[in-house]
Nucleic acid binder design. Structure first.
Lengths: 231, 231
DNA sequence: ACGCCCTTTATGTCTAGACATAATCGACAG
DNA sequence: CTGTCGATTATGTCTAGACATAAAGGGCGT
C-alpha cells in the first residue's frame, strides 16, 4: 500500500466512523505533512483524491472540510417518493400495512440482510390510486433508532433518507405480472405488467436496508443518466 | 486553463475525433514532456486523470494505450448481449428483421435522434427461444461506417461497441405488456410482463444511437451497483 | 458601524530531479 | 524450437522546493 493510499484511507476511516462529522475541518496539509513525515505533494494527492470522491471539500485559505452528506451524482437515484409525487402535482399518501414486526436474524437472512431487522409493508398512493407497494427490511444494528418509529405517518424510505447516509447501493429491476393480493393492493387487474425494483443499501459495507417496490407499468419508469469521466 | 487540463483535453480530443482509435499507443510521457516543455509530473497527472476516466490504459514499460470502449466502470452498464448470453452458457443467435432502412431527418426526429439515421430491427435468441427484440436508430453523421454494414451477422449493439465510443448515456426502464406481433416475435402469450429498456447514447454531445429493447420479464433483469468515490 | 484595502495563509499548479517496480524483449542454454 | 534469465525501459511513487491565487481577517479611514 502506498503512502498516498494510507493517508487517504486513514482520513476516510475517520469520516465513515463518525469521528469527523460533516463540516469538520480536517488537519491542514502542513499538519499532515508533519504527521506522516512526507512531502506536501503526497498529502495533496491524497486530499485531491478524497475531494474527487466527494468526501471532502477543499477551500483556499480556509482548509479542507468533511463534505455534507450525499450529493451523490445521480446515476441510479434513490428517490424520495413523496417528493417525487408532489413534483408531479399529485397528493401523496402513505398507508402502512398491518405488518410491522421485528425479525430474528435467521429470517432476515433470506433476503441477504443477515441480521436482526424490522419488517415494514405499505402502499404509496398518488391522488386516489395506489402508486406502488413496498416491503422493507431495516437492519436494526445499523439504524437502532428505527425501532422507536411506527412508520404510520412517514414512509420508511423518507425517514431513512433523513436519518442515515448510505455509501453503496445495488438495484435490481425486473418486470413481473401482478397477481392475487398484490394486484388487489395496487388496484390493477391480475396479470398487469409491473416494474419490480429491489434495492440494497449499505453504509461502509454494513447493510442498512433492503426494499422491494412494485409499480404498475404505466405509473412509473426509471431514468438513469451516465456520464463517465466527469471531473 | 492549466497546462495539465490542456494536455488532457488535447489527448481526449484526438481520441474522440477518431484520430487515435482504440488500441493506439499514445506518445510516451517523455515525448509529451518534450512536446509541451513541462515536467514529467505534469504529463503524468494528465495521463492519470485520463486513465481514471477510462479513456486510456497505462502499462508499465509498454506505454499508454487508448482504451477499448466497453470497459465502462459499470453503473448502468451497456451490456453486449452475445457476450452476456454466452456467459450464461447459452448459444446466442441474432436474427435481423426485414427492416433495415435509411430514415430521413424528420422521421428520425420523433425519437430524439434529430438527424439522418439507419433503422434496424431484430431479435436476440438465447438457445432455442427469443431473449429480446430491439429497434434501433443509428445516427449516420456520427457513425458513417454503419451505412456499409448489413447487420445480418452481427447485432448492431455489438458492432457499435467496437466501432465507436460513447461519452454519455441515458436509460429509461419501464414495464409493459407484450401484445400482438411483439408477443409473437418474443414467443410469449399476449399480455406477458416485459422489461422495456430505452437507451440514448451520445459522443461528445452528438447523438450516436437510440435503441428500444424488450425482454420478457422472466428472462432478463437489470442490476446496477453504485459506490461513490470508488477509485 | 461600515466599507475598503492589504497582509496573511492554505491550497493550486508546477519543476527537476530520485528511486522503485513491472513488463518487454533479446540473448542464451537446453 | 522452447523456456529461462537478465538488461532495458516506461510508468509509479515520492521528495523538496518554487511561485500563483483566492479568500479570510485585521486595520484603517470615513
Amino acid at each position: 500500500m502506498t503512502l498516498e493510499q494510507r493517508i487517504r484511507s486513514d482520513i476516510e476511516e475517520r469520516i465513515h466512523s463518525g469521528e469527523w462529522p460533516p463540516g469538520t475541518r480536517i488537519p491542514f496539509e502542513h499538519e499532515l505533512v508533519e504527521r506522516y513525515g512526507c512531502a506536501r505533494a503526497t498529502v495533496s494527492k491524497a486530499l485531491e483524491s478524497l475531494a474527487r470522491a466527494g468526501l471532502i471539500e477543499r477551500r483556499r485559505k480556509a482548509g479542507s472540510f468533511v463534505a455534507h452528506p450525499q450529493v451523490h451524482s445521480a446515476v441510479l437515484d434513490v428517490p424520495d417518493l413523496p417528493q417525487l409525487i408532489a413534483s408531479r402535482g399529485e397528493i401523496y399518501r402513505w398507508d402502512r400495512g398491518v405488518r410491522r414486526m421485528a425479525l430474528p436474524s435467521d429470517l432476515a437472512d433470506e433476503t441477504g440482510i443477515g441480521r436482526p431487522a424490522l419488517l415494514i409493508e405499505g402502499t404509496h398512493h398518488s391522488g386516489a390510486s395506489a402508486f406502488g407497494i413496498e416491503t422493507r427490511l431495516i437492519a436494526l444494528d445499523a439504524v437502532p433508532d428505527a425501532a422507536k418509529e411506527s412508520f404510520l405517518m412517514t414512509p420508511p424510505g423518507t425517514w431513512l433518507l433523513s436519518h442515515t447516509p448510505w455509501t453503496q447501493a445495488r438495484h435490481r429491476i425486473r418486470a413481473v405480472a401482478a397477481t392475487g393480493s398484490v394486484a388487489r393492493r395496487l388496484g390493477v387487474v391480475s396479470g398487469t405488467a409491473c416494474l419490480e425494483l429491489q434495492r440494497w443499501t449499505w453504509r461502509s459495507g454494513v447493510p442498512v436496508t433492503h426494499v422491494t417496490q412494485l409499480f404498475p407499468g404505466d405509473r412509473y419508469d426509471i431514468v438513469a443518466e451516465f456520464k463517465p469521466g466527469a471531473q
